[in-house]
Amino acid sequence: MILAGSWIHLPTSQREPELTVQTDQTGKKLGMWLFLYTEIILFGALFVLYAVYFARYTQDFIAGAKELDRVFGVINTIILLVSSFFVAASITAVRKDHKKIALAGLGGALGCGGIFLVNKYFEWGHKIALGIYPGAEKLVDGPAGQNLFFGLYYVITGLHGLHIVIGMTLLSVSLVLVQKQKITSKNDALLDNCGLYWHLVDLVWIFIFPLFYLVV
């Protein structure tokens, strides 16, 4: 190690600039993955809960799934897959120094996230208007399995929706930093990690969609 300040007075040719900027791309990425593992276990545990109750109350779960609107599920699946493509394309674009494509990709992904949330708002709103919400009389006095199905539906899609909001915040930060040239092909770890988070949110939805909407 060189003591701080001691080398600054050396002529430029004798400095060792690579020692002054220390970036550990591998470490940053591994750290992000470690965090993602905790997310996998978090959603994994909720899916286990779903699986155990599905095995016990299969008919109630099927009846519950029939009340969900498939069209919303399919549209939101397509939206999230496209948004993941946009984020992956923006990472490729940053590495190729295609700034405009990178900004367009991030903007597109943010737009997709927004549409997803609007859809979710209408979907939840419709269910709540029908008297299907946690603690509603219709569910509490109805079959136990349906109460569990919709309880899990609100908890899992709600937690997923929260992740969408967090992911959109991270993508917005990335977009501003790409615009300001703070994220470039030489320094893209932050964009990479925000992208990983967004893809994880997509991964979770890939399992939510068939479990809640396609069980018939």
Partner: peptide
């Protein structure tokens, strides 16, 4: 359904998530 979902997850992991 779970097998198809796992295949989709694999594609996202291997290509999109590098």
């Amino acid at each position: 359904a779970l097998m198809i979902a796992s295949t989709k997850a694999g594609l996202v992991l291997v290509v999109f998530m590098h």
